[in-house]
């Protein structure tokens, strides 16, 4: 069976005064139907720009998809006109963002906003759209959903707003839901509720999810497969258990050792242990990166790493990595 979403050698660039920023620099991955894929990396690694590229939301005045292919359900998206994209967004592919307040309309009630989306995409009468909005708010377990339909976003708590965003995103039964840091702005107990809700709804509706986050804990607990990005490139991809049990790329290994952990003993002989640091800084994306993007910070780097881009090598079981040294 072919993948629902196929991204191939995607290059997305922004034009700035300092030069062309290669925000996404040759990324490829597949998303199967009903799958949960995590894209993880630190600020500026290109994970959000990858998501915006899929939905063709890169503003034309600042940047563009320079090359590559994005196929959704067998259909190429990179050349589609804006009208066709509008029919796709919020219907077949929808997205939720970190801060729901920036994507909800402050002067419309939440019921109206959800109903609008349903009416536009499914062509049903307004009354049916409102009814669907009620169903969706109940589905995301907003208490007293009938009354909440007539409330404005500012009347809701942060957790409830994110529930409304999820209700709206799922209102037209999309095949793909892209969630960009959906719980980062939320408190710990609310984050747990929202993650549980997303997974439960996925089981019910069969929607595939692309979860974009910097948080390895969130990735471990919600996804089935993970893409690790660094400086605009994919450096490793693996089923979630394999990635956390045997991370291969030195960057992935470094990330896992750098995080303080709740599930292991914090002190050794009464002393707080040192976290492992990744020395140095991420490369500047306006300059061409020769060789491996991580070479300058990598403990294993050799001369070849600094001159030749490492190819993706299959380590078995769907675990692939781009590193000269670990696959030697």
């Amino acid at each position: 069976m072919t993948a629902l979403l196929e991204v191939r050698d995607l290059h997305t660039q922004f034009n700035t005064l300092d030069g062309v920023v290669r925000a996404v620099d040759g990324v490829s991955f597949d998303l199967a139907r009903g799958e949960t894929l995590g894209i993880v990396g630190e600020s500026g690694c290109g994970k959000s720009v990858t998501a915006l590229s899929i939905l063709r939301l890169i503003p034309a005045e600042t940047g563009q998809i320079a090359s590559g292919s994005i196929r959704f359900d067998g259909r190429e998206l990179t050349g589609l006109d804006e009208e066709a994209m509008k029919r796709l967004r919020g219907h077949h592919i929808s997205m939720i963002f970190q801060e729901p307040m920036t994507s909800l309309n402050p002067v419309l009630t939440v019921g109206t906003q959800i109903a609008e989306n349903v009416v536009r995409h499914l062509g049903v009468p307004w009354r049916a759209g409102r009814e669907r909005a009620f169903e969706m708010l109940s589905l995301v377990r907003i208490a007293d959903a009938r009354r909440r339909l007539d409330e404005y976003p500012h009347q809701l708590s942060g957790g409830m707003r994110q529930r409304v965003m999820i209700a709206m995103a799922l209102s037209c039964d999309p095949q793909v839901l892209i969630a960009d840091e959906p719980t980062t702005a939320l408190d710990v107990t609310i984050q747990a509720q929202i993650l549980d809700l997303m997974l439960e709804l996925k089981e019910k509706t069969g929607t595939a999810i692309v979860l974009i986050t910097h948080d390895l804990g969130v990735v471990a607990e919600t996804t089935e497969r993970v893409v690790v990005m660094y400086a605009g490139r994919k450096v490793e991809e693996a089923p979630v258990e394999a990635l956390f049990e045997h991370p291969l790329h030195p960057y992935t290994v470094g990330l896992m050792r750098a995080i303080p952990r709740l599930d292991v003993e914090a002190d050794i002989a009464g002393k707080r242990p040192r976290l492992q640091e990744i020395p140095g800084l991420v490369p500047i994306l306006t300059r061409p990166i020769i060789g491996c993007a991580f070479a300058a910070r990598c403990p294993l780097a050799t001369e070849r790493c600094r001159t030749e881009v490492p190819p993706f090598v299959d380590a078995g079981g769907g675990h692939t990595v781009a590193c000269w040294e670990v696959t030697r």
């Binding site: 710990v188 984050q191 390895l216 258990e241």
Partner: peptide, 18 residues
Amino acid sequence: LLSAATAPDPKRRRQRKR
């Protein structure tokens, strides 16, 4: 709070109840 915190360990995910 402790039950709600996520951990970077996929094996733990289904064992916990919030």
